[in-house]
Write a protein that binds this DNA or RNA. Structure first.
Lengths: 236, 236
DNA sequence: GGCCGGTTTTGCGCTATCGCAAATTGCGGG
DNA sequence: CCCGCAATTTGCGATAGCGCAAAACCGGCC
């Protein structure tokens, strides 16, 4: 089993409050794996045999309806956990995880979780914290979907992605993993057509620069204004 | 401080896996209080000084935007916890909790949480479980808002409420706390007008019987059909 | 360097749903 | 038993955004 360098992960929220030995012991239970771009890490409905910590790359978690429509639940950034089905007592994954970039993950068997938690209660506390934060974010998303129009929702999502995974360029902030119009549509509850129209509009105003699976926010500040505009405050 | 009967709460998920003494010790830290119908238990943005367990009644948790729009996050049923801001490391409540019926709650000071969790790690594990479940439900809600039309969403919400807090009558299932069209609108991301139109329609088809803050599902089975109908499967 | 397939753009009609306004109803209190 | 208020119903435009279809584009691969 590959040895994982503790110094690389010691600072992560998941491990906060753990002694170095404890961390060592926890990491000994994990293996690491690499998933090339566009490969599935697990599928919705499959047995939740493992849970994951993303080390490098980016992972998209998406949920599919019986009729085939999809929504993107979130993009996982390095340092975050995913596939925590056991956290909710589920035996199957509630979503599909796909590497959108070449990605490296740590993998623990789900079966190890109860033992780990018993030995290191902070793990549960830390996980509670992150799950709680995600719940919070979910509620914010619901609030936005309920009260804002599509353009504002798209603005918010892009700003959020930029904050989470933005790479500073001189021309602006680039979202540093491949993301399609369709993906954005699935994060905002709209269609790729509408997203395309919105981005085209922004592009012609110089707010963004975008191409195939690539988006650069050139005027983040002006996009913030769009995001916060109330439905009635007029635009030109 | 009022003594709380452990036998009434021992079976709740929050306390699963705890010894009777432990439960006793935990309950000793709580006080109980009664909130009459339509009184606020805590307000969004206020310091999260306490967390709660609902014993009797029903509580609505709602989130308000800066511009005043509201959504209903959830209805709390007896036996459930709420106001767990500490679970996400927040120092303020992210939503407002209001008793929609005369309600009785147990109240712990938020400051007691870290000590309780340290002494009884199962508390964290159990809370993780419930928060995880709520996250799951949130995602389902987002999925529905993204992929279904209003009528289906209303159908789903009513069925869910009926399952959670339905009282069986011979005429059907009654949602056993006061709920307005506006509330349903705020749970489904629409307006009270649209909800009213939908319920009127259902009423004339004999699917429901509804009045002021009162809804009875007369034909739950047919409503399930509505909820699951795909956008294109035609209706008469 | 040209071809192929997935992605994006864009036009155009359509409709589900909103928003406003006004009428109506039903409950709780006095 | 009646009044007053809040909840509900309903009509009628207005419209944001969808859905379909076709064209343009882009990048990578052979």
């Amino acid at each position: 089993m590959a040895k994982v360098d503790t110094s690389l992960v010691a600072h992560l929220p998941l491990f906060s409050g753990l002694a170095p030995d404890a961390l060592d012991e926890i990491l000994r239970e994990a293996r690491s794996a690499r998933y090339p771009k566009n490969t599935a890490i697990f599928e919705q409905g499959a047995d939740a045999l493992s849970f994951f910590l993303l080390l490098h790359g980016h992972v998209r978690a998406a949920k599919t309806t019986p009729t085939g429509e999809q929504i993107v639940v979130r993009y996982v950034a390095p340092g975050e956990t995913f596939g925590l089905a056991m956290a909710i007592g589920a035996s199957r994954y509630p979503a599909t995880a796909m590497a959108v970039d070449d990605s490296v993950v740590l993998i623990w068997p789900t079966s190890a979780w109860p033992r780990l938690v018993e030995r290191f209660p902070s793990l549960a506390a830390n996980t509670l914290q992150t799950v709680g934060t995600r719940l919070q974010e979910s509620h914010t998303r619901i609030l936005e979907m309920s009260t804002q129009q599509v353009e504002q929702r798209v603005a918010h999502v892009l700003l959020r992605l930029a904050k989470q995974s933005g790479k500073k360029l001189d021309r602006g902030i680039e979202i540093d993993f491949p993301i399609s119009r369709q993906d954005i549509a699935q994060m905002t509850g709209t269609t790729l057509h509408t997203v395309s129209r919105i981005l085209s509009g922004w592009e012609s105003q110089g707010l963004v620069e975008s191409g195939r699976q690539r988006i650069i926010l050139r005027e983040p500040h002006k996009i913030v204004v769009l995001a916060e505009r109330t439905p009635d405050s007029g635009a030109a």
